[in-house]
């Protein structure tokens, strides 16, 4: 893996972390939405697609996909996935800063365990 690929993966992570933050902000409008009938799902989708922040997130999705394709064409998934798992840390910190989510020791320990586990599974 060369520096170019590494920086591309990092850029991909920043884009998709920002994308997830925006998705969450959009989804927060639907905390009270109930899914009782089939039509509730359509209503959810309809309202969702009228939320501007979701469209900003889509643009970021497109950008991070394009970067990811470039990465995948130039390297192996077995190399790309371990580097990409840095995103667990990014999401944890970004959720705390931008969404005001709880960051207690259980969540930090849980995230670290998962990160290590993913690295081991991807490596073997």
């Amino acid at each position: 893996m060369n520096l170019k690929i590494f920086l591309l993966i990092l850029l991909h992570e920043v884009c998709s972390t920002a994308e997830q933050i925006l998705f969450k902000k959009g989804a927060d409008n639907f905390k009270q939405h109930r899914f009782r009938h089939f039509k509730d799902f359509f209503l959810f989708l309809k309202k969702l697609l009228k939320t501007p922040i979701i469209w900003f997130a889509f643009i970021l999705t497109g950008a991070s996909w394009l970067i990811w394709f470039v990465v995948l064409a130039g390297t192996d998934l077995s190399i790309a996935i371990p580097v990409d798992s840095l995103q667990y840390v990014m999401i944890l910190i970004a959720s705390f800063i931008f969404l005001g989510e709880r960051m207690n020791w259980k969540r930090v320990v849980g995230t670290i365990f998962i990160l290590l586990g993913v690295l081991l599974v991807a490596k073997s």
Partner: peptide, 25 residues
């Protein structure tokens, strides 16, 4: 492989801790 089993175990422990982190405080 053994290493993969260890990884799977770590992920399960991690999921447990994270689900615990959502409980009421």
């Amino acid at each position: 492989f053994l290493l993969r089993w260890v990884g799977i175990l770590l992920i399960i422990i991690g999921v447990y801790f994270i689900s615990k982190s959502t409980e009421n405080e």
